[in-house]
Amino acid sequence: METATSAPSTTTLAAPAEWIRIHPLVVRITHWINAFAILIMVTSGWRIYNAAPIWDFRIPADLTLGGWLGGALNWHFAAMWLLTINGLVYLAYGIASGHFRRKLLPVTPRAVVQDVLEALRGRLAHADLSVYNAAQRAAYLGIILALVVLVFSGLAIWKPVQWQELTAIFGGYEGARVVHFAAMAVTVLIVLVHVVMVALVPRTLPTMITGRARNPLWGKS
């Protein structure tokens, strides 16, 4: 699946194709399942948070899912399977196929800062959608990490007796609640920036459905 992206040299003398495949099928499917799972987990999680807020604020009830604490918990503990199993499929694929290595690495702090500044000036190039810039790489690696922390801190809250060694890593039950909330906040922040960026460069949206993007080399030979 991945080979289609990285083999422009098979037909050396032919003109470049108009379309190139930039998102493998596995990535597209897991992306949309993940988007759905995160929406459920975050909005039901907000309702659960409201039952016993850690800090002096509540999430507006209209933004939450579940209707009441019991409903929110049932959504949360149902969708956790979707999020986790889908995440495992994505991670296994990303590592085994070399997708992560090819698309997300390398990423250096310097390049990230440079690309973020470029983006803020509105000068970041998007000609070739098959290559992620450093800001994108950092964001995508960041949300993967945030979701891994969310899942583990969530398990630590769910099973603070049976898996108390895991809970201890997060500073105990109360510590795990804070970490879980913080990882949620990071996830939501990255998702918001991601959605804004897609709105600013709308042609990236269909590529995550069809997998194809216009070849930047097309018509140039």
Partner: peptide, 18 residues
């Protein structure tokens, strides 16, 4: 999606969740 009003009142959804 966000309010949960429609989805939580749905019988099928309730069955799946339970």
């Amino acid at each position: 999606m966000l309010s949960g009003c429609d989805v939580t009142n749905d019988e099928t959804v309730d069955k799946v969740l339970s």
